[in-house]
Amino acid sequence: MGNWQVEPLSRPQALTKEAIRALRHGQADGMSRRRMLRTSLGAGIGLWLLELVGGTISFLWPNLAGGFGGKVTLGDIKAVAASPAVIGANFNTGAPAYFQDAQSYVVLIDPTRYEFVPGDSPEGDGAATNVRTLWQRCTHLGCKPNFCPKNYWFECPCHGSRYDRLGIKVEQLGPAPRSLDRFASVVDGKGVLTLDTSKITLGPLPIALGQPGLIPPKSPTGCI
C-alpha cells in the first residue's frame, strides 16, 4: 500500500486575518523560508569560492607553448646550421647545433647527406629524418656536456662523462648511466624542424669503446 492514501496533515483553510496571524507565529512545517534562503546563500557562496579557486589555479597555470616544455620550432637546415654549438665546428661536418631556448643539441645522423628528410621522429632517434635532437642534460647529475671540436664527442665538465656526437654514452668513460635523452621531433614538407620538448625518450644504454654503435673519437685527446 503506497502512502498516497495518507490523510493530509491539515485541510486547506480560508486565509482569514486570524489564520494568517497564526501561520506567522507558528513553527514552519519542513524548511522555513529563512532557513531556505540561508542555505541557498551559503551554497551559492560555496560554489563561488570553488569557482574562484578553480579559476585562480587555471589563471596561474603556466603556458609553456613556444618555450622549453612545449613545442619549439627551430627552422630549416640553413637556420639550424647558423647556430653551431661551437664556432668553427660546422654543422655539415657532423658537429651539433645548439639552441638555448629548447635546451637542445641538434645533430645530423649522416653528415654526408646535408638535408632534413620530411617525416616524424616520435622517439627522437632521427633515423627517418636524418636529424637527432638531444637534451643538453647529462644523464648523471644534469650538467651540460660541452661539444669538443677536437674529438667530436660531448664531454661533461662535472664528472667527465663522454658521449659520441650522436649522444651515445661511452661505457668506460664517466659515471652517466645512459646516453643523452632525446626530444621528439618533426620535419615538415618544407624541411622545417620542430621539437616537442614535452616528449622525452630516455637515451639507450652505454656502448663500450670499439663496439659498433659508438663513433670513435677523432683524436686521442679531448678538451677536458
Binding site: 603556466p62 609553456l64 622549453f68 616544455g69
Partner: peptide, 9 residues
C-alpha cells in the same frame, strides 16, 4: 611544483 615555478625549472 609546476604552478609554483611557473614552468619546469
Amino acid at each position: 611544483k609546476f604552478i609554483l615555478l611557473g614552468g619546469l625549472e
